[in-house]
Design a protein around this nucleic acid. Structure first.
Lengths: 208, 208
DNA sequence: GTCTATACTGAGATAGAC
DNA sequence: GTCTATCTCAGTATAGAC
């Protein structure tokens, strides 16, 4: 039955989100899903492939929304550059919105960049989006060199990942309305960072 | 022998750094160190406790340097607030410097915030430093509310962690002289973010 | 094509002899 | 303090039932 595959996907997604990828065993998943152990390897081949399918299922709509939002802002800008804040909003909102609704989503997606592994998975599912947004940022911040821009985009990813998979000690999670405050804080912080004066004098980059 | 304990510590630190914590087995460690499997459990109790000891050994001098640098800057400021850039420099330099010398250090320390994340370990070893630096930031940025400040400090940690455990695709690592360029970029980006105008306008959380 | 039962290898942990 | 032997549980692989 294809129902089996869906049940594995749903259950694994939930457990990975709650406990993390490494801490969740396949036997836990099959017990909760009520399926056989070998069914996982029949449908997915390996634990890592299972994770890959889950990521894909989650990332695809997020990335689509991101691109749609960015394109809408670009249309509104009518050929001119889109403001940094808008670009960040387009990039962050679809992800944060899901975290707000489903907390399990946060750990799962946030950990992708942290759990050490699967840089290949991240690369595969998010690379084209990153390229698209870096291009928009380059137009918004023409004074930054490509190298500088790449690093700043990298910093943005790091902040987002950390925000999605952890939280400040004292404060509540990203759930519910809190998420929108966090989004505002993120956009403010990151746009401040992106707009900071470049550190390099173009060309040599050695003197400060 | 005490030598056994040291040998385990050194070997495990190297292997954790090279392959990550989860991907390194105790049997790998004992083979490389030339000791018995049970010796690890005798001296450390568990794999996680072993990691904890390694972290402690590494984190202690880093944190001491951080506090020393901060205190030096505070003395130079003569009672007044220390500039945001200086605070960031004091916080980031000791860690980045070690990454520059020992790349294995990066994966190990950077992953603490991402991998299966022993929040207890991080909490234990870095909490007092975080409090100290947050205090300095509060004096440097008096216009920010405590909540806003906490979030921004959280964003700083995220950016640093991501930078220490990953790297932009095209670019080289943090090794050697590259590290100082990265440090400059980090300070520029993060100070821009920290200095951004506060986002709080509505009264829902300002009064607390 | 799907799924079940079962076996295989290697992981971390532990008890007890020395 | 150290080591051997052993336990449990992980991910994986395969043979065969429907």
């Amino acid at each position: 039955m294809i129902e089996t595959k869906q049940k594995i996907l749903d259950t694994a997604e939930q457990l990975f989100g709650e406990q993390g990828y490494g801490a969740t065993s396949l036997r836990q998943i099959i017990a909760a899903a009520g399926v056989n152990l070998a069914a996982i390897h029949y449908h997915f081949g390996s634990k890592e492939e299972l994770l890959d399918q889950i990521i894909l299922r989650k990332a695809e709509p997020v990335n689509r929304e991101r691109l749609e939002m960015l394109e809408r802002f670009e249309a509104e800008a009518g050929g001119g550059p889109v403001a940094v804040e808008k670009i960040l909003e387009a990039f962050l909102t679809p992800a944060i919105a899901r975290v707000a609704v489903n907390p399990g989503f946060s750990k799962l997606s946030g950990r992708l960049l942290g759990e050490g592994l699967m840089p290949a998975i991240v690369e595969k599912h998010f690379r084209h989006v990153a390229i698209r947004f870096t291009g928009a940022l380059a137009r918004a911040l023409p004074e930054l060199s490509p190298v500088e821009l790449e690093w700043r985009g990298f910093f943005v990813i790091g902040t987002m990942a950390h925000t999605m998979c952890s939280k400040p000690q004292t404060n509540a999670s990203l759930e519910g309305m809190e998420a929108w405050k966090v989004l505002r804080r993120l956009v403010a912080f990151l746009s401040g960072g992106l707009r900071a004066p470049a550190t390099e004098t173009s060309g040599t980059e050695v003197n400060r």
